[in-house]
């Protein structure tokens, strides 16, 4: 008897603790709004780092494997270490879009637009964008790009996005961690409170990593009225030369 009362109150407590997200007319959670990563260290190093110079410190955002380290294959680790020495080669420093999951980590806002057909992610950084169809269509064949091709579906109240077709030229962070063309990502967006989305990305890349790994960051809702502003990178005079070179005579 005493045990069953305990059980009932436990269940009641668990139920009241379960967050009920705002919903669209079709019943799926309404993730719309302006959001921003709250684990900024991930922009600098997904494995975490000590604070130094003008970079913040913090713990690894990798939750699997449990040691928080990327499970590199030996040759890939060598490449990542080399990148770390030559961080001027970071593609985002040359105005390129970040790839996935890196687009989610910079300290810039992200607007989510959602209807029954698509979820659209508009990123302030590099005015990047991802259109995520929800119609069950497959990835196109022979498609390669910086941000890959995203297809989404709902699993309960979680938006699950499968991303493939990468060109392999993106980095994971400013520390030089890498992926290649065989990268495959499964992302999970779950609203856990009115102002929080738990974002999870499981990254599989058999030519870079010994096994798949998973990172998790919280996205925080930005104050009402927050607007994304225009991010000009190529338009900047000094970057222009990377793109067109000097005018030819």
């Amino acid at each position: 008897m005493r045990f069953s009362i305990f059980l009932i109150s436990f269940v009641a407590l668990a139920q009241s603790a379960k967050f009920e997200p705002p919903r669209q007319a079709d019943g799926h959670p309404d993730l719309q709004g302006v959001w921003r990563n709250a684990s900024i260290v991930a922009a600098f190093n997904v494995e975490g780092q000590e604070a130094f110079y003008n970079e913040p410190g913090g713990k690894s955002v990798i939750v699997d494997p449990p040691d928080g380290k990327l499970p590199y294959l030996p040759a890939a680790l060598k490449q990542a270490n080399e990148n770390h020495v030559h961080r001027e080669l970071d593609p985002t420093g040359h105005c390129h879009t970040h790839g996935v999951p890196r687009l989610l980590v910079p300290p810039f806002p992200i607007e989510i637009v959602e209807d029954s057909n698509d979820v659209v992610l508009l990123f302030e950084t590099e005015h990047s964008l991802r259109i995520i169809p929800l119609d069950g269509s497959p990835h196109p064949k022979l498609y390669r790009s910086w941000n890959g091709d995203s297809r989404g579906h709902w699993e309960g109240d979680t938006l699950v996005v499968d991303v493939a077709g990468f060109n392999g030229r993106t980095w994971l962070d400013q520390a030089g961690n890498i992926v290649d063309r065989n990268e495959h990502v499964v992302e999970r967006f779950t609203m856990t409170a009115r102002d929080t989305i738990a974002y999870e990305a499981r990254v599989d890349d058999p030519t870079i990593y010994a096994k798949p790994w998973t990172m998790r960051i919280p996205l925080r809702r930005q104050p009402a009225g927050t607007e994304l502003i225009e991010y000009d990178c190529i338009e900047g005079e000094r970057s222009e030369i990377h793109y067109a070179g000097p005018p030819k005579k």
């Binding site: 040359h94 105005c95 879009t97 259109i131 498609y143 910086w146 990377h242 793109y243 000097p246």
Partner: peptide
């Protein structure tokens, strides 16, 4: 569908 249109760099 709208696909990525990312500029390539170099002279």
């Amino acid at each position: 569908q709208i696909v990525e249109d990312e500029c390539e760099e170099g002279p």
